[in-house]
Amino acid sequence: LDITFHVDGKNIHVHGASEEVVRIIEELIKNNARAEEIKETLERLLR
């Protein structure tokens, strides 16, 4: 699975993920999660 995301100002662009995963990533970023935390969360979800 190949998910890429980047933050452009306040806009979060996520590619290669389901809508549910996109929402989770957006929440994590809004809550100022570190990249490592986001990665760990995604790995748990995608197991």
Rank of each mutant, 00 (worst) to 15 (best):
K30C: 07
R47V: 15
L28W: 03
V14I: 09
E40V: 12
I3D: 04
H6R: 04
D2E: 10
T41A: 14
N11G: 05
N31S: 13
N32W: 05
E20F: 05
E27Y: 07
E36I: 09
E27R: 08
N31A: 13
E26S: 14
S18Q: 05
D2R: 02
V7N: 02
R34L: 08
E19V: 13
R23S: 09
N32F: 07
R47I: 15
R34V: 08
E36V: 09
L46E: 06
I25H: 00
N32I: 05
H15F: 09
E36L: 09
L28M: 14
E43K: 11
A35I: 14
I25M: 05
T4I: 15
E43W: 02
H13C: 05
N32P: 03
S18C: 02
G16K: 06
D2M: 04
A17D: 01
V22E: 02
I29Y: 02
E27W: 07
R47Y: 04
I24R: 10
G16D: 08
T41V: 14
H13S: 06
E19G: 09
V14Q: 00
S18W: 03
K10V: 15
I3E: 04
I29K: 02
E40K: 13
E19K: 12
A33W: 05
E36Y: 05
T41G: 04
I24K: 11
K30S: 10
R23G: 07
H15R: 09
K39W: 15
V22Q: 04
V14K: 00
R23A: 12
T4F: 14
R47N: 14
R34W: 06
V21H: 07
H6G: 05
K39C: 06
T41L: 12
A35V: 14
T4E: 15
E27T: 10
I25A: 03
L45W: 06
N32K: 12
T4H: 15
E19S: 10
L1K: 13
R47D: 13
L46H: 09
I3P: 14
F5C: 05
A33T: 10
R23Q: 13
S18Y: 03
E27D: 13
N31L: 10
K10N: 13
N11Q: 14
K30V: 10
R23T: 08
L45G: 02
G16V: 04
V7I: 11
D2Y: 02
N11D: 15
V21T: 12
E27S: 11
T4L: 05
E20K: 09
K39H: 12
G9Q: 02
I25C: 03
T41K: 11
L45K: 02
T41H: 10
E36F: 06
L28R: 04
L46C: 05
V22D: 00
S18K: 06
E43M: 08
I3H: 14
E43V: 08
I25L: 06
I25G: 00
V21E: 03
R34I: 07
